[in-house]
């Protein structure tokens, strides 16, 4: 798959489009269907596509492991942090009204923040899940290959010894 030029070209076009669409879904959630979760999944899909087409190693290069864990945690922290911020501002946990003088503006800001948190976590988690599974797959394959190779080597050595 990685060598197919058609797929590579399509992917190069598709990936940025998907990311744009993800952003649209993320920020248009107030008005139409969609929101952080769906956006996160689409965003992750773009990365996953990138990794499948251009190889896991390159995918990992684009989105390193450390960053991934950070993204996973950061999303939750942004969501929770919004709640903590409202508490600090004297209201109950997640009372967005506290975020601004105008309750409606506060709600908007709050929803924006938490949806961003959701999106970030979901995107990072989905990518992490993909890399975890795919990493395991490629690793196990590699391992099997090495084992098989070692086995043939051993047999050869045995054969040689018998001779």
């Amino acid at each position: 798959m990685q060598d197919d030029p058609v797929i590579r070209v399509i992917a190069k076009v598709l990936i940025p489009t998907m990311m744009l669409f993800a952003l649209y879904v993320q920020f248009h959630g107030d008005y139409g269907p969609g929101g952080g979760f769906q956006a996160g999944v689409i965003f992750a899909a773009a990365f996953i596509l990138n990794a499948t087409v251009f190889g896991l190693n390159r995918g990992r290069h684009v989105w390193p492991a450390r960053l991934n864990l950070l993204g996973v945690a950061l999303g939750v922290l942004i969501f929770g942090g919004t709640g903590v911020a409202t508490m600090v501002l004297g209201e109950n946990f997640l009372s967005y009204n506290a975020l601004s003088d105008d309750p409606i503006a506060g709600q908007h800001l709050g929803i924006l923040l938490v949806e961003f948190g959701v999106g970030l976590t979901v995107a990072a988690v989905m990518v992490a899940l993909f890399f975890a599974f795919a990493g395991r797959v490629s690793h196990v394959r590699l391992l099997n290959k090495t084992r098989a190779h070692e086995k043939t080597l051993a047999e050869k050595a045995k054969g040689a010894a018998n001779d």
Partner: peptide
């Protein structure tokens, strides 16, 4: 009136029941 978001699902999800959504995010995490 109180949230000013046309998508009711979004306003319930993120505000009225925002805490459930925090829980959901934590589940994913």
């Amino acid at each position: 009136e109180k949230i000013g978001v046309p998508n009711v699902v979004t306003s319930v999800l993120a505000s009225y029941r925002g805490y459930d959504t925090l829980g959901e995010t934590v589940v994913v995490f």
